[in-house]
Write a protein that binds this DNA or RNA. Structure first.
Lengths: 121, 121
DNA sequence: CGAAATTGTTAACAGTGGTTAACTTTTTTG
DNA sequence: CAAAAAAGTTAACCACTGTTAACAATTTCG
């Protein structure tokens, strides 16, 4: 969905978005804990997200989505929820649904995703 | 399925297996063309597969599966075919079914795979 | 047979995506 | 307010997985 750079930079964007919808501060340390990676890893990712024009950030500040960053974050999150819902509907456990979902959400073709989305609706 | 090392070493094992069932010589150059990677990449992978005890290989020879290598290759291939069949059953195009299949076959949890396998049967 | 094509191998390198350690800045709190 | 805790940053490093270039061994074929 986004031209890749780091870990599938979308994971980081999505994590910030989840903090956002939960009305939590958009801090690197929270994303670090949420994704289970080190703070430097998040720091690098935020630099990359800034370079890609998806967020705005100055040193020691909270991050803020750019319009396109927010649009993409919303889309990634939506994909995540649809795929998770779908896996749960297959009878997959919550734990594995979350796990598999995170692993496949960034790689599924738009075509396959649309088919799944229709099944869930 | 296999403890990873290279690219998801399973891709290479599976590629050799596909040559095998097609009765083609198990040459690195063929796998290289098949997967669209360089010959040195395949060379490294075969070293790794040898180290893992999945194939036997001496310099400038064709590769041969070890018993466990063959068992795993068969399993990986089976997963591939089931997932592809499933994607096709969703109405996904041949092209995207192949693409998505390769991207997700190594990461799906056993639980999710089993659910999908039951749907296909 | 011998030249050309193909295949296999090694070495040097690049990019991604992480890590730990050490330091700076900011926030919290006694 | 000052000390402690937490967050942000930078630098140096590592593992993985690929690349290209150059060369060796093997196979093919005129």
């Amino acid at each position: 969905m986004v031209k890749n750079t780091t870990k599938s930079i979308e994971d980081y964007l999505e994590a910030f978005y989840i903090l956002y919808i939960n009305k939590e501060p958009l801090e690197s340390a929270r994303v670090s804990r949420f994704l289970g990676v080190s703070r430097p890893a998040v720091n690098k990712a935020t630099h990359e997200l800034t370079r890609l024009g998806l967020i705005n950030k100055t040193p020691y500040s909270e991050i803020a989505f750019t319009p396109s960053g927010k649009r993409i974050a919303k889309k990634v999150y939506h994909r995540h929820m649809i795929i998770k819902k779908y896996l749960l509907s297959l009878g997959v456990s919550e734990k594995n649904a979350n796990r598999d979902c995170c692993l496949i959400e960034h790689v599924l073709s738009e075509e396959t995703f649309k088919k799944i989305e229709n099944l869930v609706k």
